[in-house]
Each structure stands twice: as C-alpha cells, then as structure tokens.
Nucleic acid binder design. Structure first.
Lengths: 168, 168
DNA sequence: GATGAAATGTTATATTATAACAACATCCCC
DNA sequence: GGGGATGTTGTTATAATATAACATTTCATC
C-alpha cells in the first residue's frame, strides 16, 4: 500500500472554490439530517466532520486526531474512531479503504454508491458521479444477491499528472 | 471495519468444485506467466500463492504467515508482505482493501478490473464479471484523466444470507 | 569461482484499530 | 426533581497490520 504523501495540493479536482462555505454547507446538511433522523451530532462529532472536510482530501484517523489535539482537546484514538464510525454510519463521511482514510460525502441525503478514483502514486482522489456506473453496480450486486447501501467504491489507478511524470 | 470471522464456509459462490485442481491450475498459470515475463516465481512466492488460493476467500497477510509457519518455515512478516507484493504486482493476487486481505485472481493473463462484492457482516466475497460495469469504469476513469491498470474494485454490501438473518 | 543484482532473513518499530471499563451526559418516566 | 436506562466520551492498554533498515543468501552471468 503506497504511503500518502504530505498533502501539498488540496482538492485537486475542484480547482478554486470557497472552501469555507463548502465546509459550512456540509455541516449544515449534517445537522439537518441528524435532526431528521433523531441521532445526535454532538460537538465532538461535528468538529470531526469539520476537520475531515477541512482536509478536503482523504485524511487518516490519526491525522484527524492530530488536528483535534492542535485545537485543544486531549483526545485519544478511540474518540476519533468512534466519531468517524458514527459519521460513516450516517453516510456523512466515506472511508477510503485503499488509503485507510476518510473523506466527506458530498451527497449524504440518501443511500448511494460514491465512486472514487484514487491515484496510487500521489493519493489524489477524484469523485465520480457516473449514473451508468452506479446502476451497473446495483444491477450486478442484485444479481448476485447483494444489497448495496451507502457505500463507496474505489478504483485505484494513475492520475493524469502522475502518468505524465512517469512517462518521462 | 468489521472483523473477518473465522472462515467456516469457503468459497461460497462456487459451490462444490475440485479445489485442488483449482489451485493447481492457478499455480500453473502463474508459472507460465512468470516465465513469459521473465520474472521469478520463487519457491516462497509459489508457496504463498498456493496458500492464498487454498484459503479461497480473502486471507490476511498474518493468516498466510501462520500457514507458512505451520508448514515449516520461520517466516517473519516482511517475508510474507514481499511475496504478496510481488504477486499483486504480477496480477496473480488481488488485495481486498476493505478487509486487509488477499485473494487469488482468476484471470491474471492481462490487465483488467476485478469486481468483488464483499459482505460487511460475514466477509463473503463474490467475484463479478460484469462487462458493462468494467467498461463504465474504464470510461469514467478516462474522462477524469485516470488510467486504470490491473485493479480491483470492491462494493461492500450485505449478502443474501446475512440480509435474511438480519431481517428476522 | 568472482561479481552484481535480486531475493530472503532478521530485528526493530511504525501505523492503524480496538478492547475494556470508568466517568459523565441526556432522556424519559414517574 | 429523583432515578434508572441509554448513549457518549474519557482513559489505559493492547491488538492487528505494515514497513524500515540492514545482514545474508541465492542466482544468473561472466
């Protein structure tokens, strides 16, 4: 498993955008969703969600822990893992298995399959929204007797930039 | 991440089949491929490949290590990881990221995308071969500037049997 | 047989994740 | 508001997964 290099560029696929607004929107959505569902978006959970969004590319549990500690709290690993587990359960965050990391979900309102392309060299993560891909997955899964909930698939490959570099 | 329970049923998707022949075939293919490619399928690597196939469902590196040690050798983790890395590089084995485990590839001859459905409850892994899914992935990836090599995607869900159990 | 490259052995340690239990908070019922 | 059930967080310890670093051996080739 390749190491995630220290994140130099953030959120490469989306170019410039108002990142603060982006985080705020995600948190607002989360608050509304949790209220509707009768689950508690506690202070800690909200903070962890913000930190994941702030990274804006896959961030590991221990990365979140570091950020938390920088802020103030004397959090320990279970604290972070529990918060992340909650966020994943609620579909607010996806776990990127191939990087042992987490990323905010841009569309947490209902169960769906998120699609990520992860560069095996630089860790850049692009989110796809290919309806045909989604339906192919659902169809295939159903045919095999599987039920897919809010889940993420990851395709590891080589991004544009790393391919160019490698080609030199 | 759910724990992989001790494997009670093996290879649930294929029912009965001649497992020994199945392993032998995989090893024979691997030998031919490695010869063609001018890479060395050493005794250790061949043995690890066999062990992965013998498990016939995702097996962790430390699981392989245990089997190796049971056989004879005083192998250490790096030994196993290196062998697995080699096998993954050659496309003979896929890493199932969501389980930190490895499974033999049934079609190592050329680069492709393997598709796995992994049950989040019991760890059962079904291999798909949906051409439409494969082409949707390739197309989507290309549109995003990604190049996909021999890679595996995983869709985590709930298998038939576990859904029935949960429904009770 | 000497040599360089590749593979493996060996020891130590890094990274990721969870178990187990204590303490505290919140909610609901009365 | 007390009191108990439930859920959340704190805390300590440890399990599970993975790799770094360097020594040694093996192998193909000359």
């Amino acid at each position: 498993m390749p190491k995630l290099p220290p994140s130099s560029k953030s959120h490469p696929q989306h170019g410039k955008h108002d990142h603060r607004a982006c985080i705020a929107r995600a948190v607002a959505k989360a608050e509304a969703l949790c209220r509707d569902r009768g689950v508690r978006l506690t202070e800690l959970r909200r903070r962890v969600l913000e930190l994941v969004w702030r990274a804006h590319e896959p961030i590991g549990a221990y990365g979140v822990l570091e950020l938390l500690r920088a802020e103030n709290s004397s959090a320990a690993p279970p604290t972070v893992y529990r918060a992340l587990d909650f966020l994943v359960e609620q579909g607010l965050v996806h776990r990127v298995e191939s990087r042992n990391a987490y990323i905010g979900c841009i569309r947490p309102e209902k169960p769906h399959v998120c699609q990520y392309l992860v560069c095996r060299t630089c860790g850049t993560t692009a989110e796809l929204n290919d309806a045909r891909l989604a339906s192919a997955i659902t169809r295939s899964a159903a045919a095999a007797g599987f039920e897919v909930g809010t889940q993420a698939i990851e395709v590891v490959g080589l991004c544009d930039q790393c391919r160019d570099t490698a080609a030199k």
